[in-house]
Write a protein that binds this DNA or RNA. Structure first.
Lengths: 148, 148
DNA sequence: TATTGTTATACTCTATAACTATA
DNA sequence: TATAGTTATAGAGTATAACAATA
């Protein structure tokens, strides 16, 4: 029942009706609280941009369509995200050796540097928001979340 | 490890790097999967609009600022959401007896009807996406999610 | 034919800043 | 002074539809 970033998870003076019964909404409220802490913790990158940055770092040469599938967004959306990362000089669209239609996505030197900084920031953020859970509880939660 | 709506939760051929360590990202991925099922299940209302509709039904006369606080958004944002619910003739801004600055939000007759329909839809949706969890697991998950 | 990237376009969610009426 | 609502504006994320290049 922690308050994260001033967002009161389940205020007692409000009726939630059906929302209080939905596990999907419980996940959504946790996500809102976590997002508010993320904003204060990770400088200059939104959650989708950081996710893309980390995924490209971990999968160098991945193409846009595949990255979009992994992130759960379509080609036009991943296009916009890569455009922004490219404008920030963090990601480069290199030609793919295997498929001349595709871009092989890579981090730039600056991108690798930024990846290191943002990793430290998001790591600290995640530890903070999970601070009310024991290691055992976290393991259980992670396990249950894979079932969706 | 269910696939919900064609979104593959943790594809095995992709490295997730640091993302795989973050409980916040695990929650985000579950939320993406659930959202994709929501879209197919609840007709004509987005998650924020349905949340507002249910909260107004459960707290008739609530004002916009308080509703925004409960939902975790600011006054300008709740304004836009109520504008859309009002344009759909689902919600009415009634004058507040206690405070002439405030709107007492209420469902219209059509709003109550829509609330009933959407409740059935979202209930079925939630049961479907939670189908891989036992009642005991769901209870544990709900408990752990309150800790953020 | 199918797929990758791209562009044009539009909609939703969200916020900041400034204004007004009222408290 | 402070708060509730409002308006104007902007940015980010998301999608659909169409097109060119390549598979």
């Amino acid at each position: 029942m922690a308050k994260t970033g001033g967002f009161e998870q389940w205020p007692a003076d409000v009726e939630f009706g059906l929302l209080g019964e939905l596990v999907g909404y419980a996940i959504r409220r946790a996500q809102i609280a976590i997002y508010k802490d993320f904003e204060k913790s990770v400088t200059g990158l939104t959650p989708p941009l950081l996710a893309a940055l980390i995924l490209i770092d971990a999968n160098p040469g991945i193409n846009q369509t595949r990255l979009g599938q992994v992130m759960g967004v379509n080609r036009a959306t991943i296009m916009a995200l890569i455009d922004r990362l490219a404008a920030l000089k963090l990601v480069r669209r290199a030609p793919s050796a295997a498929d001349r239609r595709a871009n092989a996505l890579q981090l730039t030197d600056l991108g690798r540097k930024r990846h290191g900084i943002a990793s430290a920031e998001v790591w600290a953020h995640d530890a903070r928001v999970a601070g009310n859970l024991t290691p055992s509880e976290l393991k259980t939660l992670r396990h249950l979340l894979t079932k969706f």
